[in-house]
Design a protein around this nucleic acid. Structure first.
Lengths: 212, 212
DNA sequence: GTCTATAGCTGGATAGAC
DNA sequence: GTCTATCCAGCTATAGAC
């Protein structure tokens, strides 16, 4: 097979580029105006095209949200899968949690789309959803491999870490008042989990980071 | 002064009753359809009147939200101000936290209006807001009087308790998966606050977050 | 593929008769 | 105070010329 571009390749390439440009413009808009404020008119204007042209690339407004969701889920999976260097449960889990909190707080609209499901009639397609599922499952395994195995402790952890995110974005946007509590939160969770399991077996010595 | 109703009294009374009926209908609607889905057409239909009649009692849609907010804030203050019987910090704080979580989860639309501020152009008036301020201040005092004085610990507590609420309403609506963790959460917070006094000591060999 | 033009709907809010 | 009738703005989505 030739590696020169074929006619269909550039057509596909141009199509993808146009779709990407629209989605990029959509992210700018939702970051500025809020996730729910996205309108096709504003989007077209921002992208330098007209409303009907959007329909040449997306079949509906929700399919634009779905493309954004897919991007966000992939970014989430990539971010969380990057290797973590650290020794011991606290360092590794704290780095992981901090990564999660910073991913969420660095783009509140993305967080809202991905985790809060507040867009009226929108449900992501399974294909867009898949990367997020994978990342959450591997987080669960990371917790398990460092001593958080009890379901109650897992639920406590998710509540606390997402609570930090919510307080941060709603009460100190752009600041770090709650982000700065990630380390202490992980210490507290680990101490609590260990206090309830006095006969606790240490995790494997290898630094596990991803792909579990 | 006579205690028989004067003409202006019934007028006022009828007016208040009509306003209350509209607000009651509004709560039914937002509980069914979501806070953002409230429309004056639906509201009028539900209340058995027509849209312009609403404007005889409220000057705008946001003033209806404000009346709802005032009701919710008063309910919140009353709920949290009820006496707590219990011995020791854990019992008292846990009862208080449970009361908060149950107040929030028992009516998600009310929780959303009161604490999440997700209605587009709406800001509550200071008069509607006041009861909520009072209740939150007294919660802070309750924490302080039972050993949670450090700002970091207060922030951890709010993050954890609101995190329980958020997980409960979004991942197990109507259930008690996270409500059932209130007791354990308070125990964990108290143990942490006691273990870390007087000064927070960083855990061994950890990259400090950028917090203060 | 991109445009102009517009359909069709829903929203908040108002005018004016009664 | 309550209604009928309506305005005006915004939205998603489509028709049809080019």
């Amino acid at each position: 097979m030739s590696n020169l571009p074929q006619p269909n390749d550039w057509r596909e390439g141009r199509r993808r580029a146009a779709r990407d440009a629209i989605v990029r413009a959509a992210w700018i808009l939702v970051d500025e105006e809020g996730l729910a404020a996205l309108s096709l008119r504003d989007l077209a204007r921002r992208a330098g095209i007209t409303t009907p042209t959007i329909y040449a690339y997306f079949e509906s407004k929700n399919s634009i949200y779905d493309a954004m969701f897919g991007q966000a889920a992939t970014q989430f999976a990539d971010t969380m899968a990057a290797p973590i260097d650290g020794n011991g449960p606290h360092e590794i889990l704290a780095a992981h949690a901090l990564r999660f909190v910073e991913f969420c707080t660095s783009d509140p609209a993305r967080y809202q789309l991905l985790f809060q499901r507040t867009v009226p009639g929108f449900e992501p397609t399974p294909e867009s959803f898949a990367p997020a599922i994978r990342a959450l499952a591997s987080t669960r395994e990371l917790l398990a491999s460092h001593g958080i195995t009890d379901e109650r402790h897992v639920d406590l952890s998710t509540a606390l870490i997402t609570g930090l995110v919510d307080q941060q974005v709603s009460n100190d946007p752009g600041g770090d008042r709650w982000i700065g509590l990630v380390d202490e939160s992980v210490a507290m969770l680990l101490a609590h989990a260990q206090s309830e399991r006095p006969a606790w077996k240490p995790p494997p010595r290898t630094t596990r980071s991803k792909g579990l």
